[in-house]
Write a protein that binds this DNA or RNA. Sequence first.
DNA 1: GCATAACCTAGTATTTTAGTAAAGTATTAT
DNA 2: ATAATACTTTACTAAAATACTAGGTTATGC
Lengths: 150, 150
Amino acid sequence: MKLTTKGRYAVTAMLDLALHDNNVPVNLADISTRQVISLAYLEQLFSRLRKEGLVSSARGPGGGYKLAKAASEISLSQIIDAVDESVDATRCGGQMNCQGEEQCLTHDLWEDLSTQIRGFMTGVTLADLTSRRSVKTVSQRQNAIPMVQH
Amino acid sequence: MKLTTKGRYAVTAMLDLALHDNNVPVNLADISTRQVISLAYLEQLFSRLRKEGLVSSARGPGGGYKLAKAASEISLSQIIDAVDESVDATRCGGQMNCQGEEQCLTHDLWEDLSTQIRGFMTGVTLADLTSRRSVKTVSQRQNAIPMVQH
DNA sequence: GCATAACCTAGTATTTTAGTAAAGTATTAT
DNA sequence: ATAATACTTTACTAAAATACTAGGTTATGC
């Protein structure tokens, strides 16, 4: 799992969509204006989001995008995975032919970390965000990742 | 908090250091060979790690790098922060002059997420990794982030 | 049939990543 | 002292990812 601004743009746009989703499709031009993301860049992102089945589109006047499922069914990990093609985090290309166990230790380590963070992102849905529960609150739910003491 | 291959290189190198740290400094050429990272790139990374006080260096023959503190005192978040200069995740430059509350919602959201992930990374130290406890095990400790059910 | 808005393709500037190259500085074993 | 070792610094470069631009096409509601 990679965390970059690209994924953040996608989450931002999807959140905008979730907040304005009242049966009427939302067009990208509006999202572009509201979230200050270029229209063409949004088109690229939504092309992927559509291919992953996270949004559905309607063409023509009054057209636009809608969430393809309930906001409670769309997790942050789904959104980020849709736009950030996954990097192969393993140096050995997943073929386990690394020299010695040290390198595989690092390999396993990073996979573990990725799993942890993905798990966290999977536990937070768009519905959680629109209901303005803080991420901290969400993460303290039964089925999600409680947070570290500070 | 940004998660890229750069940070992974740094963690890998630091883990190599931790595994070979028996009073004798470890030189970068050895790490380069073992972890298959170019020497000059390691030099760039270690320059930052040294400035952040995570490693100490010894020059001259037999010189190299050592951990500046105990492996149990060095967390993954420290390593990643040292090499990946933090991005300003807020569109408004932290000045809170965003138009309307929607944009600030996203802004807060991403800061929350960052805090969560940083918290997780702070809970995992080099000592945890060298002791070959899996990240999952570590994350299930009292003071760290338990993981999501799968 | 016309405006709207998704969809598609290609290109491009910028930044980041990862690595090279070269010259220099400090340390220390001999 | 001196050579060897090894870090330090600077500058440069190739490749990739990011963010955006331009120009078109296709579908559709009015």
